[in-house]
Write a protein that binds this DNA or RNA. Structure first.
Length: 860
RNA sequence: GCCGGUGUGGUGAAAUGGCAGACACAACGGACUUAAAAUCCGUUGGCGCGAAAGCGCCGUGCGGGUUCGAGUCCCGCCACCGGCACCA
């Protein structure tokens, strides 16, 4: 006798058995069009997980949550007759591997390979139906050669505003193609993180700290590669509309892109030597502008400042430059600024207004200059109050308030009003509602060449270079201070072998230390920056379609088949966490659109349907973390309860999208359920072995049992389609419970149960299916079995229970034949003695009969 | 501050505007057992009445409203979680 606790069913025997079987027979390998075994008659279904970063700590329970959901869908669709593409791979470049490598001295390639092996083993122990022949790894030269190739597509393309799409750079007719490429270099202030020794994208900086590690980030001007994602801002907003994504995620992206409509207005300086263009979303308040504010970094400042103001301006600019983004926002409440000594003229009334600089105006947004309307903007209000600048009311909340007639109001308002209303003290605009006033003034400005209607976006171009070792090198060389692309035949460009790959800390990339590698020719040297981790994940879903293709990033037929079909096409279901809402999901859409414009892919959007799985909290209801000690390791759960129990519990916890706490007793509950299913088929012998139990091929389900069977098929099918796995499982429990005490158990019912349960608990059901086949005959694996159909006729009940209400409160229940007429049901209701007690001596004013459900008598 | 999400038993949760709490967990009681584990059966929102079968009242964050009927729809709040945040 073993001293370890006996398992309620022998999962430790049959789970590895089936995993090995699936691997050996390649059950879940999906052929491409043209491959042997491909069946073009079947529809396709592409179900995708966000591939993991293979960290050293192994799988977290959050991973198998989403992966189980997609596995259920994949297995289900397969049983429904689809060609299912369900792949997995590794997002293996990136900072953590490199940080770890620096700490331990081991090469990141070594630790990455170890981590991948560990992750893969863990995933395989969960019995996921991945087609491992399609596995990808972003650090594999056979993979990143195509990442580099796509970079070259970006480099060799520009966005033509006339056609609203990317075109080959050769179609650009201007003088400086380098100024319009989708991948370009620019010297600009960027997010520099000293601790990580690299620059970071805006999306990777959270509250002024690096997303990885939480190190401080400062602004520093550096020469960097950027991708012109801003060219796609409008399409990235517009084309969200057709996607079946959670509205919250769409909104997150829209807000991040941050479109705002308004006008640019040109002010000339009082001495008429310079022109300042401001951006405003409220051109209707132009008559209320009482000063101009420039970002301290604005180039024009040098030319405006008066002699007397120079020291103050210089001091303020230096102070601003030293501030990190964090400081700059933390001091948000306390406005600061300095007068330049110069004045501008308001284009509509010629009024002389002072020009200030202040750090509440950001250099990167709009024109880096604003017209301040303190009466109608909170920030301008605070600034004007602090520095005693005039405040002029030009919008009235109601049409009857305020003075019209174009007169200037002398009295300053008591509070700031930022809403919409009616223009006052605004010359020709007086009386117009805000929307009309905006249109009117904008048209006037345009007619006089003083301004124009403009759209601005918060989105900035994507900072694409990193000063790190563990990433894709750029396929670029420099000669005479100019960059040019490597040819496609020179790919992949592999990183140099480096003993010391630590960041230099100076902003010079570690690749610069590889002197041999660096030298491309006598005159040319290689680019030493590397690409960010997002590069590989921007297109991995395309590589899965054709991962072994050595001649192209993805074969056209494979891409057309798996990504095509439907409108707007793409991956049929994509499951992952919310944390990528404005990172991976935005970047990947951008790359996909470029590839689409250039004719390399067939759909404008990559991911048709997106679901975010919810966060799993620790048993204490807190976020799982090592420091709290509430982390659940999937391996431990599997060894104690089995993979099927872990999968089942993850799906039974609650709705997939909800945040929910872990519960070990909940896992036990699912394990008990699975054990009950096991014992429907198997019986324990004296000596502790399992043998067939009381299942009978002769026994036919009775009417009530048929109803349970068919109701379950219907509900489980519908619930899987809507990803309501928790309620699908509860129906399977109802199904199971209905047969626990039935002997002998009808074989057909048991087989239907196993089929419906199979996507959730593939090992257990496959084992029992095989066992039943050995006893009763039957061929084939459950994984290949067709999904059952339900028959409505079994769902119809002969008699229905009708609730009788008086004034909406339940007072009695009656049983009526299923075909009882409305009148007959009403008569029965009126005849009920219990109802009579409640209606006695009262008028029945109204009777509501809901067929098959209830009768409500309204009395007074 | 702005935007989004959530709020239902002791717990996770379920409910096309139609019997609130399915299905589980935990707890309690019982059967089996020398005993325990496992398994099986039963009870389980609160309050009140009743010996019992049962009956009544209250109950889905709070306050209003629509409706024969509201967890569900509308208006106004509150709390928690997430995102954005000097974006003109």
């Amino acid at each position: 006798m073993s001293t370890t606790r006996r398992h309620p069913y022998p999962f430790s025997v049959f789970e590895p058995k089936w995993q090995q079987h699936w691997d050996r027979t390649q059950t879940f390998h999906t052929p491409n069009p043209g491959d042997p075994g491909f069946d073009p008659a079947r529809p396709k279904y592409y179900v995708l997980d966000m591939f993991p970063y293979p960290s050293g700590s192994g799988l977290h329970v959050g991973h198998p949550e989403g992966y189980t959901a997609t596995d259920i869908i994949g297995r289900y669709k397969r049983m429904c007759g689809f060609n299912v593409l369900h792949p997995m791979g590794w997002d293996a470049f990136g900072l953590p591997a490199e940080q770890y490598a620096i700490k331990t001295g081991q090469h990141p390639a070594v630790t990455t390979a170890q981590n991948v092996a560990h992750f893969k083993g863990q995933l395989q122990r969960l019995g996921f139906a991945y087609d491992w022949q399609r596995e990808v790894n972003t650090t594999d030269p056979g993979y990143f050669r195509w990442t580099q190739w796509i970079f070259l597509q970006l480099y060799n393309a520009w966005f033509n505003p006339a056609s609203n799409r990317a075109e080959a750079i050769g179609t650009y007719r201007g003088t400086d193609p380098d100024g319009v490429r989708l991948a370009y270099v620019s010297e600009a202030p960027v997010n520099w993180c000293q601790a990580l020794g690299t620059v970071l994208a805006n999306e990777e900086v959270i509250d002024g700290k690096s997303e990885v590690g939480g190190h401080p980030v400062e602004r520093r001007p550096m020469l960097q590669w950027k991708l012109r994602i801003t060219a796609y801002a409008q399409r990235l907003i517009d084309e969200l509309d057709g996607l079946d994504w959670p509205e919250g995620i769409k909104l997150l992206q829209k807000n991040w892109i941050g479109r705002s409509e308004g006008a640019e207005v040109h002010y000339s300086t009082a001495d008429a030597t310079e022109r300042i263009t401001v951006f405003t979303t409220r051109p209707d308040t132009l008559y209320g502008a009482t000063y101009i504010v420039l970002a301290p970094e604005h180039a024009i400042v040098d030319r405006l400042v008066t002699e007397e103001q120079w020291p103050a301006v210089r001091g303020y600019r230096e102070k601003t430059a030293r501030k990190s983004d964090l400081d700059r926002t933390e001091l948000a409440k306390d406005k600061s600024g300095v007068w330049t000594g110069a004045f501008a003229l308001n284009p509509v009334n010629g009024e002389r207004i002072p020009i200030w600089i202040a750090d509440y105006v950001l250099p990167g947004y709009g024109t880096g200059a604003i017209m301040a309307v303190p009466a109608h903007d909170e920030r301008d209000w605070e600034f004007a109050r602090k520095f005693g600048l005039p405040i002029r009311e030009v919008v009235s909340p109601a049409p009857t308030l305020g003075f019209g007639g174009g007169r200037v109001c002398e009295a300053e308002p008591l509070e700031c009003f930022t809403g919409e209303g009616y223009a006052i003290h605004s010359g020709p605009l007086d009386g117009l509602p805000t929307e009309a006033a905006k249109a009117d003034i904008t048209a006037r400005l345009e007619a006089q060449g003083l301004g124009s209607k403009t759209v601005n976006y918060k989105l900035r171009d994507w900072l694409f270079s990193r000063q790190r070792y563990w990433g894709e090198p750029f396929p670029i060389v420099w000669e005479d201070g100019k960059h040019r692309a490597l040819s496609e035949t020179e790919l992949p460009l592999t990183p140099p072998e480096l003993a010391d790959f630590k960041p230099t800390g100076t902003g010079e990339p570690p690749l610069a230390k590889a002197t041999d590698w660096l030298r491309y020719s006598d005159k040319a040297v290689r680019e030493t920056n590397t690409m960010p981790q997002w590069a590989g994940s921007c297109w991995y879903y395309l590589r899965y379609c054709d991962s072994q293709n050595a001649a192209r990033f993805v074969g056209a037929d494979a891409e057309g088949y798996w990504m095509g079909g439907g409108k707007p096409g793409g991956v049929d279901l994509y499951v992952g966490g919310t944390e990528h809402a404005v990172l991976h999901l935005l970047y990947a859409r951008f790359w996909h659109k470029v590839l689409f414009d250039l004719g390399h892919v067939s759909t404008p959007e990559p991911f048709q349907r997106l679901i975010n799985q919810g966060l799993i909290l620790g048993e204490d209801g807190q976020k799982m973390s090592k420091s709290r000690g509430n982390v659940v390791n999937p391996d431990d759960v599997i060894s104690e309860y089995g993979a099927d129990a872990l999968r089942g519990y993850l799906m039974f916890m609650g709705p997939l999208e909800a945040t929910k706490p872990w519960s070990m007793t909940g896992v036990e509950g699912i394990a008990r359920f699975l054990a009950r299913v096991w014992r429907l088929v198997m019986e324990e012998q004296q000596e502790g072995t399992w043998a067939h139990g009381a299942v009978s091929a002769e026994a036919a389900p009775d009417k009530a049992q048929l109803r349970v069977i068919h109701a379950s098929i219907k509900k489980v099918t519908a619930d899987i389609e809507t990803l309501s796995f928790n309620t699908a499982l509860s129906q399977l429990m109802v199904f199971t419970n209905a047969f626990v005490n039935v002997t002998p158990r009808p074989l057909s019912a048991v087989r239907t149960l196993l089929t419906l349960l199979h996507p959730f608990a593939p090992h257990l059901t496959e084992e029992l299916w095989e066992s039943l086949a050995q006893r009763f005959g039957g061929a084939g694996e459950l994984a290949d079995a067709p999904w059952p159909q339900w028959d409505e006729q079994f769902l119809i009940e002969d008699e229905l229970e009708i609730v009788l209400q008086v004034n909406g409160k339940v007072r009695d229940k009656i049983i009526v034949p299923k075909d009882a007429t409305r009148e007959a049901v009403e008569a029965l209701a009126r005849g009920s003695a219990r109802i009579a007690e409640w209606t006695a001596g009262k008028d029945i004013k109204k009777v509501i009969v809901v067929p098959g459900r209830l009768v409500n008598l309204v009395v007074a």
